[in-house]
Computed example of a mutant assay.
Amino acid sequence: MLLQEWMTSFVDKLNRKESLKPLLRNTSFSLAISCQKDSYLMEVRNNHFSWRRMKNENPDVWLTGEKDSIISVASGEILLREAKKNGMIQLDGSLRKLLLLESLLFLCNLQPVKRIS
């Protein structure tokens, strides 16, 4: 899977998650994802996620690593903190924005609770 295909799929998934809406109210957030020679910017504005190729922006958070590591973190296979601690990814940003990113990733991958009647 190409990184562009993954970004499209990831942003679509984030936009479909209703549980994220309260967390994002009145919030702007930008995440630069850098992998090999490619850099992309994911933004949240007005409760809507979008992505595009990186230009000369100054994002809130930089996430750098190999494609497989980035996808593992974004899909919930490995926690953001654990991947950073193990050297799989590099992160740069304020603590508040890193916590927002971690919350977004966790809530995006949260499985719905099955209710028993």
Rank of each mutant, 00 (worst) to 15 (best):
K85R: 15
C108R: 13
L63N: 09
L41H: 06
W62P: 02
N109G: 12
V44N: 02
M7W: 08
H48G: 03
K67Y: 11
K13W: 10
I116H: 14
N86Q: 12
K37M: 03
W51Q: 03
S75I: 13
Y40C: 01
Q111R: 11
R96D: 08
E18V: 08
K21D: 01
M1N: 07
L79S: 12
K84H: 04
K67F: 09
S34N: 11
L100I: 04
R16S: 14
L14M: 15
S103R: 13
V73Y: 12
W51S: 05
L105F: 12
R96T: 06
I71E: 10
L110P: 02
Q90S: 10
W62N: 13
A83R: 05
E82K: 13
R96N: 04
S69C: 13
L23F: 05
L100K: 11
T8W: 03
E82P: 01
L91Y: 05
V73D: 05
L105T: 00
F106A: 14
R52C: 00
T64R: 12
S75L: 15
L104E: 07
P22W: 11
G93H: 01
T8G: 09
G93D: 02
K21P: 00
W6M: 05
K114P: 02
R53Q: 08
R81W: 13
L31N: 00
S103N: 14
F106C: 12
V44E: 02
E57Q: 15
L23R: 08
R45Y: 06
L2K: 11
S103A: 15
E5S: 13
V11K: 11
K84D: 00
M7I: 01
Q90I: 03
A32W: 00
R45N: 08
F49D: 07
L110V: 05
L105A: 07
L101K: 08
L24S: 04
D60S: 10
G87M: 06
R25G: 00
Q90L: 04
N47C: 03
L41M: 02
K17T: 00
A74R: 04
D92R: 14
S117G: 10
L23S: 04
P22R: 13
L63R: 08
R52L: 01
P59W: 02
E77L: 14
L99I: 09
E18D: 10
K97Q: 03
V61R: 01
N47R: 10
T27W: 02
S103T: 10
F106T: 09
L99K: 13
N58G: 02
K97F: 02
L3Y: 11
D60Q: 04
L23V: 00
L107H: 09
N58W: 03
S117T: 07
C108K: 14
F29I: 09
Q4K: 13
A74G: 07
K114M: 14
S28N: 10
Q4I: 00
S69M: 03
V113R: 15
S9K: 15
I70D: 05
E77C: 11
R25N: 08
Q111A: 13
R45H: 07
S39F: 01
V73W: 13
R53C: 00
R16Q: 14
R115L: 15
N46W: 01
Y40K: 09
R81H: 08
L41D: 06
S39I: 01
L91W: 07
R52P: 03
L23Q: 06
V44M: 12
K21S: 04
W6H: 13
R53F: 02
S19Q: 15
M1S: 12
S30T: 13
E18I: 06
R52Q: 11
D12V: 01
S50L: 05
E102Y: 05
W51L: 00
